[in-house]
Design a binder for these strands. Structure first.
Lengths: 344, 344
DNA sequence: CTGTTAGCGCATTCAG
DNA sequence: CTGAATGCGCTAACAG
């Protein structure tokens, strides 16, 4: 019994054939007769050789079957977010089907350079918290695709956030409403607050600002104006931030009659807080969400929201990356009217 | 401007030094003067060389800084399970601190051999659905650690499942109770069902069977016996399976007065179903969970359950792996008495 | 269909 | 502290 791991060369010697033959048996079936190949594979199994060393293959071939999924934030945060984890689901399913491996990469990492040499490509889900990563992605030579944000000349997957926000807002807002918005990453602040006159960040690239545009357009059409003191910023789509913001909104005077939330997590937290305070939804308070997460289905009353299929996004992203797609795609969404808007 | 990527050799030539010097500048600071090193690093940055090629380093050094996290099931499933995703959180946090990368590996994959050559080690979370993977882990030479199950001679992280189950059951069961158990992976069936006389699987290694033992011991002490027709098997800790099982349990006659659930997801689903049917918890029905997930905190009445910190498990697993730990560890748990047991 | 050879890009001896 | 040489394990050309 050999102690040290067998190499292709060892095996070739033991079987009395050349290294190329062994290599071909594993990698290029068409380069030798079926019988020969099967014989070799069998012999290899018997002597405990399970195929060419992958590390060497990565160097030699320049491909590894590893795809890096660059998340917007830390893995810890992303994995507990229902929207992100659903996206990961879509990505992983597709990658597994194609025999690819999934490397999770945090968006708050220093740099992407320590994996670029051995991964086959990048899927970037959301603008990375460390925005330098986005620049590195753009500069680096491996295929990449972005989701829910854009980098010039990099293929992407998005929905029409402006239109989606417009539609859901239009379903909620009525004449004479006092409208508030619970937004995500609108300004550069680590805590929940009203945006007032703080400068908006990333005004062009951010999906949050596209959504804000949609909300405001719908409001305008309904003849309602929304001042900045009615617009909240939350640093993350997180229950704790949401609870705090919900409290602020519900304590405001006058209390808004419609609150447009940029995620279902936020909307659900607001809904629960409102119910706990004995507020009648939707008669006293209308609420809209965004995303269409599963938990929203379990809430009563049913949430009015925009359903975007994160699984589809993940699948689309993985497929597009593997297929070498270069275009930017816009995926559809569904407006779902629940019971949190309109009078009963 | 070079089109092709710079190699260490190119850089050495350009800077007029030897390749070893460049290599040392990046990898072994002690091998050259600080000034020299900083000068070289600066030059490298200026000409756009970001360091030695990682793929080549993997081959040469035999390490990659990649740790594979082998999940019990498909990534798609695991990532949406609150317990598993919390575990991933713990693992990823620790790995990121130590500059390691996280490769997610599905437990229903064919084999582990296609990554063994380039990862530095394995963390196995739960017995993989394809149990062959466990054997491969045992046979392969890289460091590995298992969590929530065991492989002979492989270090592991576990809690005392028997004791935990015993304690939570003991807190719930009262004399003359009719007790039912909603168990996980007790028999080899893809659907929810009572176990009756079906042969139990994996009787030794499975944590489910340890929990079952604990439940039964507590019942016995209370003078209650639990027949097999009062024990359900669920293939996964999944809301849909749980809902179905909950329905069966609540429709049973006589209806159990205590139901011991092997996960909080199951327990919460049962709780919701019971409330929807107007059943008084805990006066007409006592419920216990297992895991201590966040969602259980939000439920009313509060769930009585076993809190095991999945984050700690993840951290412990990653640390133990990186530290070369070889022992098997038993982590503590907490019995949390909520309002779903005992009379009010 | 098979065997020989030249690197993939680097880290590490070992002299100097 | 530096430079030349060796090979990590493999694949792709190419020649037979």
């Amino acid at each position: 019994m050999n102690k040290t791991k067998l190499t292709l060369k060892d095996v070739a010697q033991q079987l009395g054939v050349s290294t190329a033959t062994i290599s071909n048996a594993f990698n290029r079936p068409d380069q030798l007769s079926k019988a020969r190949r099967e014989d070799i594979l069998l012999q290899c199994e018997r002597i405990g050789y399970s195929g060419p060393n992958k590390a060497a293959q990565i160097l030699r071939k320049g491909t590894s079957n590893i795809v890096a999924l660059v998340l917007a934030d830390s893995i810890a945060y992303m994995v507990s977010d229902p929207v992100a984890s659903t996206f990961i689901k879509g990505v992983s399913t597709t990658l597994q089907q194609q025999g690819k491996h999934l490397l999770l990469y945090a968006g708050d990492s220093k740099s992407i350079l320590d994996v670029v040499d051995f991964v086959d490509g990048f899927i970037c889900y959301g603008a990375p918290r460390n925005y330098k990563l986005a620049r590195e992605i753009a500069a680096q030579p491996k295929p990449a695709i972005t989701v829910d944000f854009d980098i010039v000349d990099v293929p992407s997957i998005n929905i029409d956030n402006e239109d989606a926000a417009y539609q859901v807002a239009k379903a909620a807002i009525e004449k004479d409403d006092v409208v508030a918005i619970l937004g995500l990453r609108l300004i550069d602040s680590p805590s929940t607050c009203r945006i007032y006159d703080n400068p908006l960040i990333d005004t062009d690239s951010s999906i949050s600002h596209r959504r804000l545009d949609g909300y405001l357009r719908a409001a305008e059409e309904k003849g309602v104006s929304i001042q900045n003191e009615w617009i909240w910023h939350l640093p993350e789509s997180d229950r704790n931030y949401a609870r705090q913001a919900a409290k602020e909104v519900l304590m405001s005077s006058p209390r808004p009659s419609t609150v447009l939330c940029m995620s279902d997590i936020i909307a659900l937290e607001l809904l629960h807080s409102a119910i706990a305070m004995g507020i009648d939804v939707p008669n006293e308070l209308k609420i809209t969400g965004f995303d269409g997460i599963e938990e929203a289905d379990r809430a009563r009353p049913h949430l009015t929201t925009i359903c975007q299929s994160s699984v589809s996004k993940g699948e689309a992203a993985a497929k597009a990356l593997l297929a070498g797609e270069v275009r930017k795609q816009i995926l559809p969404f569904d407006l779902k009217i629940g019971e949190t808007v309109g009078k009963r």
